[in-house]
Design a protein around this nucleic acid. Structure first.
Lengths: 228, 228, 228, 228
DNA sequence: CATGAATGAGTGTTCATTCAT
DNA sequence: GATGAATGAACACTCATTCAT
C-alpha cells in the first residue's frame, strides 16, 4: 500500500470518529432497554455499536457512566422542551395537561427511550448512585414542571388548588409510569396484555381534570368527550 | 433458663421439617425484596434462614421455583380474601373501591410483600416464565376482581359505565403499582422522596369515583372530603 | 390399632429384613450399570431399592464398598463355576474354549452384569482401589482359568504352545471386553451400532483355534514369523 | 539471556493469540486423558495451559466443545493419512493390515491420544452427544478404512471373503481397543499388568490373517462351521 | 485512537455422607 | 433397625474491567 493511499481515502476509523460516542450510546440504549442495567452485557453493546469492548472505555469510564450518558442524551436533554411548551402554551390549562402527557408519550413513551425510567426504578435499590443521579437530573425537574402546570391552572382560575400538590403530581406521573412499566414487562412476554396508551392517558387525564377543574354547579359541566 | 442450658449446645442439625419451608420462604422474601430476582443470592437466603445452601434444594427445586413459592405464599393466597370482601360488602360501591385499595395497602402494600409485584415487573423481560406465571395466577384474577367492583357499581346505579372497562381497571392498578414501585426504588435510596401512601390512594380513588359516579346535575354533587 | 395386631402380621419392615441387602445390591447393579460409578447417585439406588438413603449406610460403609459388594455378588461368585466347567469338561479343548466364551456371554454378557467390567475399566484411573480389588478378585483368577484351558489343550496335544501365553489369553479377553464395551457405549446411544455377539464370539474363537490348533498337514504352510 | 532480563517481569497478560488454542488443547488432552470427561476439571486444564479459567471460554464455548476440539485435533485430522496409506500401499495385503495396526499404535496408541477412544467409550452413555459425534467423525470412517483393507485382500485373491465383514472389522478393532482400554485402566494403577502392545498386535493380526488367508492345502483341514 | 485477549471473582446447583430421632 | 433432613465442598460458566500492542 502506497503512502498516498492514506491521503486519498480517509480510513473508516477516522471518518466516523466524531460519530462514535453517539453510535455507542444508541447501541447502549438498545441493550439497556432490552435487558436492564445489571443484565446488559457490554459485549453486546460493543457488538451492536460495531466497536470493540475496549473502545467503550475510551469514551465512558464504566458501565454506570455509560448508562448515565444514555440518560443524559435521551431524557435530560428533553426537559428544556417541556419547559418551553409550558411557558409558551397559549390555550387553557386542561388542554395543556392533556397535551403534555400525550406529547411525552408520542415523543418518548412510544420509543425505546421509555425503557429508561422503567429500568431505573427496577434497579434503583441495587444501584443507588444511578437512582440519585436520576432523581436530581430528571425526576425533580419533571415534577416541578408538572406542578407548574397545576399552578398555572390555579392562577388562571381554571383549577381548584389540589388537596395536595405532590399527590396530584404523582397522579399524573403514576399513569405514565404505569404505561412504561407495563409496556416493558408483561406486554413484552405475555400474550393478551396489550394496552391502548393514548386512550388510557386521555381517560386518565380527564379523570384528573374533572376532579380538579372549577365547575359551574347549576349547569351540568361540559365534559370532554371520552376516548373510546 | 438455667445457665446449664447454655452448655447444651444447640444441635447442629435441628429437625424442624415442618417449620423449615416457611422459614426459608420468609428469608427468601426478604432477599428477593431487597435485591430483586437475578441479584438475589441463594447464599444469602440460606444464611438468613439459618440453613445451608443445600437445604434450600430439599424444599425447592430451583431459584425460580423458590421465587414462585414466595409469590404463592404471600400473594396468591390472598386473592380469596379480596373476593370475599367484594362479595360480602354491605355498603355503597364508592366506599368499597376506596376500602379495597386501602385494605390492600395496609395488609400487603406496607409490608415487604409489596416488593413482589415490583420485582416481577422489573425482571419480567429477563424471566418470562415468572411473568407468565404471575399474570395467570395473580394479575388476571386481580383485574377481574377490580372489574367486578365497577360492575357492581354500574349494576346498582352508582357508577356510569366506564368508557373502557380495561382502562378503568388500569387506572386503579396504576396507583397501586406506582406506590409499590416508588417505595421500592427511589424511596429506598434517595432522601426527600417520601410518600403518603394512604392519602395518595384516597385522593386517587376520589378522582376516579367522581369521574365515574352518577351525579345529580342540578344540585351540587356531594363530594367525599379530600384527604389532606 | 390393638397390640395384638402387631403379633398377627409381621410388619413389612421385619419381613423383608433379610432380603434388604440383596434388594439394595440389585438396585445398585442397575444404577451402576446405567451410569457408571462416579455418576451413579445413591439417591437413585435407594429409591429403586425402596429404602431411604440412610439405610444404604447400614449395610455398606460407602459407595465404594457398595460397588465392591455388587461385584462380589455378581462376578466373583461365578468364578468357581468356570473352574468346575473346565475341570469336568469331557470333550476336546477347542470346544471347551468356544463353549467357555459362549457360556460366559449367555450367563453374564447378555445381562446387566456385563456392565461391571466395562464400568471398572472406564473408571479404574479415578478409583484405583476398585481397580486393584477387581484385578485381584476377578481378573487374575479369570486369566488363570483361560490359561489353564490353553494348557489343557497343549497337554492333550490339541494345541501348539502359544507363542506367548499372556498374549493368547488377552486375545480371548479382548473379544469379550470389546463386546461388553460396545454394548454399553455406542450400542446404547447410536443407531446402527448393533452387534451379533454370539456370531462374533464364535468367529473370533475359530480364528484363535485355527491359529493355535495342531493340524495335519502335508505341506506346512509358510507362516509369518511370530513376534516373541 | 542477560541477568537483567530477570527483572523484566513476565507480563501478566501475554498476547499469544495464535498459540493459545493449541496450548489449551494440549493441556485439555492431558486432563481428559487422566480423568475422563466428567471428572476433568476446567480449573486444571486452565492451570496446565497457564491461563485463567475465563480464557478457556474465549476459545471454546463449553466443556463439551473443548473435548470435541481435542478429538478433532488429535484424531479426526489423522484419518486422511490412514486412507493415503491404504491407497498407496505397494505390497501384499497381509503386510498392509499388520502395518496399519502397528502404525496406528506407534503414532497414536503409544501417546496420550490413545486415551480418547477409551474415554469416549467409558462415558458414551452419559454424554450421548459426544458419542454420536465420535461415531460419525471417527468410527464410521475408520471402519470403512479397515473394511477397505479386507476388500483389497479379497480383490487381489489374497484373502477369502470373511464370513461376515463387520465381524472381521470388529476383530481388528477389538485388539486395538483392548490395548487402549487396558493401558488407560489397569496398567495405570495395578502393578504387574504390563502389556507388550506391538507383540500382542502382531500376534493378533497373524491369527486373523492365517484365518483369512487363502492357503494351498493338500488336505483341507476340518473347520468348525462358521457362524453366519 | 483502537483493539481484543486476558482476567478472576462470583453463583446456582449437585450429591456422598452424617446423625438426631 | 430405619429414616430423611441437613450439610458443605465442589464445579461449570459469566462478564466488567484492564492493558499491552
Amino acid at each position: 500500500v502506497l503512502p498516498t493511499l492514506a491521503l486519498q481515502a480517509a480510513p473508516k476509523r477516522e471518518r466516523r470518529k466524531d460519530a462514535r460516542p453517539s453510535e455507542i450510546l444508541d447501541a447502549a440504549l438498545d441493550v439497556f432497554a432490552e435487558r436492564g442495567f445489571a443484565a446488559a452485557k457490554l459485549d453486546e453493546v460493543a457488538a451492536r455499536a460495531g466497536v470493540s469492548k475496549g473502545t467503550l472505555y475510551l469514551y465512558f469510564t464504566s458501565k454506570e457512566e455509560l448508562f448515565k450518558a444514555v440518560v443524559r442524551k435521551n431524557i435530560v436533554s428533553m426537559l428544556a422542551e417541556g419547559r418551553a411548551m409550558i411557558a409558551s402554551w397559549p390555550g387553557n390549562t386542561a388542554d395543556l395537561l392533556r397535551e403534555f402527557m400525550i406529547e411525552w408519550w408520542r415523543r418518548k413513551g412510544e420509543t425505546k427511550v421509555s425503557a429508561i425510567p422503567k429500568v431505573i426504578m427496577a434497579e434503583a435499590r441495587n444501584f443507588p448512585d444511578i437512582a440519585a443521579f436520576y432523581v436530581e437530573e430528571v425526576i425533580s425537574p419533571a415534577h416541578e414542571m408538572i406542578a407548574s402546570i397545576f399552578e398555572r391552572g390555579v392562577a388562571r382560575g381554571e383549577f381548584v388548588r389540589p388537596a395536595n400538590m405532590e399527590d396530584a403530581v404523582h397522579s399524573v406521573v403514576s399513569a405514565v409510569l404505569f404505561l412504561v412499566n407495563w409496556k416493558h414487562s408483561f406486554a413484552c412476554c405475555v400474550a393478551g396484555s396489550e394496552m391502548h396508551p393514548e386512550r388510557f392517558l386521555v381517560n386518565h387525564a380527564n379523570l384528573l381534570i374533572e376532579g380538579l377543574a372549577v365547575r359551574e354547579r347549576v349547569a351540568a359541566p361540559k365534559r370532554t368527550a371520552r376516548h373510546q
